[in-house]
Design a protein around this nucleic acid. Structure first.
Lengths: 191, 191
DNA sequence: GTAAAATGCCAACACGTGTTGACAAATTCA
DNA sequence: TGAATTTGTCAACACGTGTTGGCATTTTAC
């Protein structure tokens, strides 16, 4: 049913509409702040359809927040450029409207919803930690944690809290300065 | 009524009990996740009392989240030690159970509640930004923003998201590594 | 001791939530 | 065309929310 990209039945179209509306609203208002009725209204259909197509709000969120950070293979880069590359990558993913807007979704919701928090931890464990592990040696978990500290902090202040001076920061400056911090965390593991 | 510390009328005692329970629950569950009934139960009184004593949930939150970061005067420290001092200060404030548990409250709530977000931005503007401004010159807002990026990210991953490797990080290592990053942000403004 | 004020509990309200079932409209298939 | 299946709408349920007013109980003051 889901793996026939050529045929677009009517139901698939509204299913996509629901998912898209859900992603947008979850990202804007968080899990608890988003109601099924809001999603239905944004998708221009009945609230009942949201439940019928996805089984419930929880299941819909799980589907909407099933995000892929698309982390590049860090070992192919020159070691001294990993920090900046990481920051540049995340800024691109977050700011690209076409791609996945997933991280802000999870970030916003994780603060007050245990399900979302668990999902974010899982994303970190399965995507960020392994990528760092390849170049940080035995101390990788701590390094990955420090990196997460800075990356999530940037995402939070810029996209969730929308702290004015952070929003105003030009992209290249963020890449340079935050990149240097992350580089320091990574280098610290292999002095 | 409020400025007679000697006399502790019965009502003042329960008023304090409500406020204390509210602070704890807001910090644990966020604004939206905390119900008036929960607070009342924790304070061992009736939900109606919460409204009667504080006028409503919003007003109670405003009172509970009225936090003071107690930032030290950064100009009295040797310039190269400001980064570590800042991190050490925040860790002490956050981990000290006796003091204000305010920042995690605001952090958790700010993600999904506009009122809490505005309050956090205000705290940043009135407390963090001026402290940085004294030693960062004309570029102070950007520097303060970068610092906030790292500090709030640390608070978020360690106390809200509870990312295991960050929770496991020993205090002194956080002071050293995160302190170095913050120091770099501050030094970057005055090369 | 008695009147008055405070402190507190109970039941209920109006509302918004996720979710469900019955029924109409549209689409598909023969 | 006619029957069957899908797609959608409507109304309603059961529940949890913040909030309110009325009444019992305790404390205070004379």
């Amino acid at each position: 049913m889901t793996d026939s990209p050529a045929k677009k039945t009517k139901s698939d179209r509204t299913r996509e509409a629901i998912l898209e509306a859900a992603r947008l609203l979850f990202a804007q208002k968080g899990y608890d702040g988003t109601t099924v009725r809001d999603i239905a209204a944004a998708a221009a259909i009945d609230p009942a359809m949201v439940i019928r197509y996805f089984g419930g709000k929880d299941a819909l969120f799980a589907r909407a927040a099933d995000l892929d950070l698309r982390l590049p293979d860090l070992t192919t880069l020159p070691r001294h450029a990993v920090g900046e590359a990481l920051v540049r990558h995340f800024l691109t993913v977050w700011e690209g409207d076409g791609g996945t807007i997933g991280l802000p979704i999870a970030l916003r919701s994780a603060a007050s919803n245990d399900l979302a928090a668990a999902r974010l931890r899982e994303i970190f464990a399965t995507q960020v930690a392994p990528a760092i592990a390849r170049l940080a040696g035995p101390d990788a978990p701590a390094v990955a944690g420090l990196v997460a500290t800075q990356i999530l902090g940037l995402a939070f202040t810029r996209y969730v809290l929308r702290l004015p001076p952070v929003v105003a920061l030009p992209r290249e400056r963020i890449v340079a300065e935050v990149g240097r911090s992350i580089q320091a965390y990574i280098d610290g593991a292999r002095p």
